[in-house]
Design a protein around this nucleic acid. Structure first.
Lengths: 282, 282
DNA sequence: TCCGACCGATACCCGTGCGGTATCGGCCAG
DNA sequence: CTGGCCGATACCGCACGGGTATCGGTCGGA
């Protein structure tokens, strides 16, 4: 199977529309139709049910969409890591650590400090990324190690070690009535008048519908909270970054958040192994 | 990156010889040279150091060999699983379980029996394979679930659950002086006169050098043992399959063998999940 | 009921690029 | 110094991918 055919099929399966998929791929529609039916002929499997009004996935098509995405990720990972290996042996660039921007700041600082103190430590490039981006970055080879947070991030197919587990707090405007409580429950936060939950961008950049404000980063978020426009549930450790115009109140029934360090399962990099070892000693 | 170029590069990196690699791929040598240097140009990375007498891998080339193998496995897995998904929804064929031929026979029988008793159980095709083949079969999508044995099999990149842990025994001809012992150590078995360790075939079918007899399966092996030509160290559970012309003696310092059930980390198959659940209940 | 819009498939043409053969250039052995 | 080995280069023919034009089928609205 060819990557081209697979990329084409994934685009069609995503869009369920040959025209839009062709546009996304930057080609015309007829070659796309041809390539997909050629793939079906090669596999001997019907992947899509087409009518002139709708395109739907068959069971086999759903499998290929899922498995094919992994395979394309693996291809991209091979390419990225090869490029980075070449850059590394040319002397510039070290290993890349991906972490959600604004998360586990203190832990990250301690980790980088401890790592730098090791003899023969490889330089670490920190890649601050959006929510739930660390896993894909690892899987596509754009990063060598990542810090991620269960149960939010998906670790399937990655090797991990646990670093810390913590409860969650809700961050509220300091003047708000709820801020006076010693503890809260998720039910108390579901429909607070005037404090809707914020809306984060999806991977494709669009925002879900809802009443809350659209946010892109933590600075923006904290400002919106201090303005009394929204609230925010996050792990305990965000407290270290809060100023006194906002208040953190424990949420007793929020799921525990486990911070883990993760790497691709077949990693052979000694540098990654050393960094993980350092992290586990913290 | 194209699968064709990657397959070509992997072949050259394996053989470290363009001519042999071309032969293995079934093409002439010049297109192969061209494809590999085109890949290098596309990546902007030197993968091979060539002289007219020898070809060696660069660091980046070693990375691409490793990562590229994984990526090609993933591509093949996508293809295989799609084909099998189509066959499954056509009604024929169930999930494929890979297990080393002759290993954990009793456990396998219990598992299959328990699974068959479940309501709505999917049929299970058992794929008996050679040593250390289960991992690759899972990774290339030829199997959905496998039983493997630590520390012999490589589980990197697979999700696993432990089933049982057991010690090892040495299987000896019943008349042999060592057979009278209650327990033995690995050191006692290293150089037993007249009883060299058997030689198993490598994945490519060739045999390593050594004094022991070449063996291909357990029947052959047991026959050679009863003939007094070799001995064999294996997990406790092989005892169930022994006849009285051979004797099993515990090896006290042999590594413990853990039997695990494994599946690809991103498996979404409910049938696999059900089989794993059944296995854990045993 | 019919027309128009939408959507995927088909027909046909053109250019890129893959694979083949022939040959070159460098390197070690005898 | 020469023959043999090995990878690179040169050149050619054809298959295949991508483009435009068009068809066939289906739904919605007048």
């Amino acid at each position: 199977m060819d990557t081209r055919e697979l990329r084409y099929f994934v685009a069609v399966a995503d869009e369920l529309h040959f025209g839009r998929a062709a546009q996304r791929l930057g080609i015309a529609q007829p070659p796309l139709s041809r390539a997909v039916s050629q793939l079906e002929r090669r596999l001997g499997v019907v992947l899509l049910n087409r009518t002139s009004r709708a395109v739907t996935l068959t069971d086999a098509g759903a499998v290929l969409l899922h498995e094919g995405r992994m395979a394309l990720d693996a291809m991209e990972a091979a390419e990225q890591r090869t490029r980075r290996a070449a850059a590394a042996s040319a002397g510039d660039g070290g290993i890349v650590l991906a972490i959600k921007a604004g998360a586990s700041a203190e832990l990250l600082a301690k980790l980088l400090h401890a790592h730098a103190a090791e003899p023969g430590a490889v330089p670490v490039d920190v890649l601050l990324c959006g929510p739930a981006q660390q896993g894909p970055l690892l899987r596509t080879g754009s990063a060598d190690v990542a810090v991620l947070h269960l149960p939010f991030d998906d670790t399937t197919g990655l090797d991990t070690d646990e670093l810390v587990t913590e409860g969650q707090v809700v961050v509220l405007p300091s003047g708000h009535p709820l801020a006076a409580h010693r503890a809260l429950r998720l039910g108390d936060l579901a429909d607070v008048p005037g404090l809707p939950h914020p809306r984060w961008p999806r991977p494709d950049g669009s925002y879900p519908d809802g009443p809350g404000p659209e946010v892109r980063d933590h600075t923006q978020l904290l400002q919106l909270i201090s303005l009394g426009r929204t609230l925010f549930v996050a792990p305990d450790s965000v407290r270290a970054q809060l100023r006194d115009d906002v208040v953190a109140v424990p949420v007793v029934d929020a799921p525990l958040v486990t911070t883990v360090i993760a790497w691709p399962p077949h990693s052979r990099s000694l540098a990654v192994a050393a960094l993980v070892r350092t992290a586990l000693r913290l």
